[in-house]
């Protein structure tokens, strides 16, 4: 979606399911990568390699992205992203969300997996609206 470069900001909120083994630690990995300045890279990698998200795999992804592995390992082991994850979970609960992915495109709610045309339609409409303002 090169045509959308500079026109879209994607904000990530973490909504790890409680009953999946690696949901939470994967979110921790994303947060620590963010703190080390490589969020986009890790975000992409986690999606690509999912569901291989056990602790050892996550550490190998951190290596792959040249992160500070010692700091990374400490962070996911000590759950240093817990405050962010719990804050996002609380927000999801307030919004009555129970499926992922869930999107809010300029505030418009879209639930579940959709094809890219569905998103493009909304995004282009929103871009048109933005131009009019």
């Amino acid at each position: 979606m090169k045509e959308l470069a500079g026109k879209v900001k994607l904000v990530i909120k973490f909504f790890p399911y409680r009953y999946r083994d690696y949901s939470r630690i994967a979110a921790e990995a994303a947060i620590e990568s963010w703190r080390q300045g490589k969020f986009a890279e890790m975000h992409e990698l986690l999606i690509k390699r999912s569901p291989k998200l056990d602790r050892d795999s996550l550490i190998s992804y951190a290596k792959e992205l040249n992160l500070d592995v010692e700091k990374f390992t400490k962070a996911i082991d000590n759950q240093e992203g817990a405050a962010i994850i719990d804050r996002d979970l609380k927000l999801a609960k307030e919004l009555d969300l129970y499926v992922t992915p869930a999107f809010y495109i300029n505030g418009i709610k879209v639930l579940g997996v959709r094809d890219s045309d569905y998103f493009k339609n909304i995004i282009f409409k929103e871009l048109e609206n933005a131009k009019k303002k």
Binding site: V11, K13, P16, Y17, A26, F39, I105, I123
Partner: peptide
Amino acid sequence: NSPFIGSDNAPVKIIEFIDYQ
């Protein structure tokens, strides 16, 4: 205080709730 991808002041803002697993 949430991570994001793309330009900060883009006209379209998407918030995604994600579970990586």
